[in-house]
Amino acid sequence: MISLRSGLRVLIASRPVDFRKGMNSLAALVSTTLGANPYSGDIYIFRSKRSDRLKIVVWDGSGMVLLTKILEDRHFTWPPVGDGAVHLSASEMALLLDGLDWTKVDQKPVKRPTKIA
């Protein structure tokens, strides 16, 4: 099960990947291309050349999970193609998975208390 824990990182690989790649090949891309640990429990999202498909790789604590989603009547909103990764919040990821434009979300900073009452 994929849990949305505190401190969860969600990364989108900016460059499209060959969608014939499976779980092990995508986990290797996490290490080599993104410079991250595929067994960290963070969520890694990969895009295809077609804008209606994505794959997610995540370690859930007991095994590697591969999730594929293809939108039927629209396309995902992707960041510009480039090297590296784009970080998303859990709410932005939820919008992305629903096929909505996550780039329109205005993240407001959370005010932290300065003193403990």
Rank of each mutant, 00 (worst) to 15 (best):
Tyr44Lys: 06
Tyr44Trp: 02
Arg50Leu: 05
Arg50Asn: 09
Ser51Asp: 14
Ser51Cys: 12
Ser51Met: 12
Asp52Thr: 04
Asp52Ala: 03
Arg53Trp: 08
Leu54Glu: 02
Leu54Val: 13
Leu54His: 07
Ile56Met: 06
Ile56Asn: 01
Val58Cys: 07
Val58Phe: 02
Val58Gln: 08
Trp59Val: 00
Trp59Phe: 10
Asp60Gln: 01
Asp60Asn: 04
Asp60Gly: 01
Gly61His: 04
Gly61Cys: 06
Ser62Met: 12
Ser62Pro: 04
Met64Glu: 09
Met64Ala: 08
Val65Tyr: 04
Leu66Gly: 02
Thr68Tyr: 15
Leu71Ser: 05
Leu71Trp: 00
Glu72Arg: 08
Glu72Val: 07
Asp73Phe: 12
Asp73Met: 10
Asp73Ile: 13
Asp73Trp: 06
Arg74His: 15
Arg74Asp: 15
His75Arg: 12
Phe76Cys: 07
Phe76Ala: 06
Thr77Ala: 06
Pro79Gln: 07
Pro79Cys: 09
Pro80Ile: 06
Val81Cys: 06
Val81Lys: 08
Gly82Met: 02
Gly82Cys: 03
Gly82Ile: 03
Gly82Ser: 11
Asp83Glu: 15
Gly84Gln: 05
Gly84Phe: 01
Gly84Lys: 04
Ala85Gly: 11
Ala85Glu: 08
Val86Gly: 08
His87Cys: 07
Leu88Asp: 02
Leu88Asn: 00
Ser89Gln: 06
Ala90Val: 15
Ser91Leu: 15
Glu92Met: 10
Glu92Asn: 06
Met93Leu: 14
Met93Ser: 07
Ala94Cys: 13
Ala94Phe: 09
Ala94His: 11
Leu95Met: 06
Leu95Tyr: 05
Leu96Met: 13
Leu97Ala: 04
Leu97Phe: 02
Leu97Arg: 03
Leu97Thr: 07
Leu97Pro: 00
Asp98Glu: 15
Gly99Ile: 14
Gly99Cys: 09
Asp101Met: 09
Asp101Tyr: 11
Trp102Val: 02
Trp102Gln: 03
Trp102Ile: 03
Thr103Ile: 07
Thr103Trp: 12
Lys104Cys: 12
Lys104Ser: 14
Lys104Ile: 15
Val105Gln: 10
Val105Cys: 08
Val105Glu: 10
Gln107Arg: 08
Gln107Trp: 06
Lys108Asp: 11
Lys108Arg: 12
Lys108Met: 13
